[in-house]
Amino acid sequence: MRRNYVLRRNLTAYLFLAPALFFFGTFLVWPGISLLVQTFQTGGVMSPAVFVGTRNWERTFADPLVLKTIWNTVRYCLMAIPAVFVVAMLFALALNAVSVGQTAFKTIIYYPTLQPILVAALMFTFVLHQDFGVLNVLMRAVIGEPVNFLGNEVLAMPTIAMVEVWKGMGFWTLLFLAGIQSLPRDLYHAAELDGAGPWQRFFQLTLPLLKPTFFFSAIFATIVNLQVFDSIFILTDGGPFHSTASTTWYIYRSLFTFNEPGYGATLSFVLVLVVLALTALQSYAFRERA
């Protein structure tokens, strides 16, 4: 009787879990395993896949473009994430300080976040275009000539990062604002009574208290931004001279342009390792300073 009950209880629970576990297994775990297998194969699009041992891996380590795409991807994250966090934090503090019009500003600032990154990137062609881009209209008025933001090896990646800052600022602003507004008020009153000015309160109370928010935000932003693809695909397609070629861009190209899925699988595996390594590093860094 008792055993029957336990059995039924387990059965019920797994019935509830069954659809989720089925799709999770089929479309996430299984592709993950095939990914590892495919790193040792070549072909497969037109002809059956052939086992080639460690050839893809040897090529990965010898290919300078692999290192370059990893560095580009990390470089992109180092530009986009701190920039969007600082901007969002400033906006959040400003929103927190005002009362009249707060909702209206929140809505307007959040609006770009709703757009697909692809549409944001397309819109940026209208901001950056040498002939009719609105930013270049401004540049012509200020410095006398337009700037070729995307055709310049030095400027191209910061420009791509700017798309992410524009699109992401609303999301992070609201998230940081929610964090700020959940902080205990008493602490601030006490600090004020002790004579702490606004700067002191910000650096010694707000920032340290928001650390858990920053921790999760940084990890989440890193996982998402290390996969950067859409904006690069639209704005530069990896150029000029591969200066904006991200790892995901290289994965996509190795499947569709170079017709080398095995090599693309190896690059994908490298991407997984980079993501895991960087998120682990961040967890470690945040814990160290706790």
Partner: peptide, 10 residues
């Protein structure tokens, strides 16, 4: 934490 972009080929 698995980046979905890494799974497009499989």
């Amino acid at each position: 934490a698995i980046p979905v972009a890494a799974l497009i080929i499989p």
